[in-house]
Design a protein around this nucleic acid. Structure first.
Lengths: 146, 146
DNA sequence: TATTGTTATACTCTATAACTATA
DNA sequence: TATAGTTATAGAGTATAACAATA
């Protein structure tokens, strides 16, 4: 499938191209899985919020979206009661968001239910857990590399 | 980070959850890379078209989107001259799409240029090419498993 | 009647530009 | 004047429902 005699750089480009396609397609497939509680965007934001209450700007930065985007996501999350907004008493411009009890419960439920689709596929592939974990870690490294 | 004493199934779920998050985030990051020629959606469709001229329905199926979605994507691709539509002479309902010369050139250019961002990150991770290729193959397996 | 593709409509996610309130 | 966040607006990507043309 891949260039056999390429240099390391060439192989990298080829692998990068494949990675790009597969990630995009997997993401689309995941997006298509019915989300009854929250969209992937909302879940991702909530997972970030869970790691520690954040300002809206910090959250936008962590999620790599522009502030107006996060304003919207947070507004929806608040609307449905999954997060709460705590205005900073020191600096009235700032709002901190944290998970509500509902939000925590939902996230927990998600972890044991919403990933079932992917987990099922993973099991169907008959892939070694160790290889899979390694692949995930690799992707996380790529993602977090700055 | 992960449950240490969990059963295989539990670990799978955890890994699945992490995979889900990282794929979604990577996809977003990739989407955010400036696309001067075509969006990831368009590129993905073109890559599929390249493997053989397809009907619009076949293309929608291959890309796992609904027909109206593909109608739109194809309309945009045709508008900018990256593909051509060839009406089937046997069955006038059917239209086959294939890459235009421009489309082929663009796709080729993409393969050596548009994945540079990802390739750069991959190199920065100092990850072994073999591990990376294995991870990509694993993702492709997950994606194609039916 | 069944199939292929399109049009109409709507929702989510995202962005940039312009604005408000506060520091 | 600078910063945090919001509002206004727009575009891409996606879906479902209803339709037209053809088989």
């Amino acid at each position: 499938m891949r260039t056999k005699q390429g240099t390391a750089a060439e192989i990298d480009m080829d692998t990068a191209a494949r990675l790009r396609l597969v990630v995009m397609r997997l993401a689309r497939r995941l997006r298509q899985q019915a989300e009854f509680d929250a969209s992937p965007t909302m879940l991702s934001a909530m997972a970030t919020i869970e790691r520690g209450p954040l300002t809206l700007g910090g959250l936008a930065e962590a999620e790599r979206v522009q502030p107006p985007t996060m304003t919207r996501v947070v507004a929806r999350l608040e609307e449905v009661g999954l997060i709460t907004r705590v205005p900073d008493p020191q600096d009235k411009r700032v709002a901190r968001v944290s998970l509500s009890a509902d939000g925590k419960r939902m996230l927990a439920r998600n972890r044991s239910r919403k990933t079932a689709y992917l987990a099922k596929r993973l099991r169907a592939t008959n892939v070694a857990e160790a290889d899979l974990a390694k692949a995930v870690e690799l992707l996380e490294t790529i993602l977090n590399e700055d």
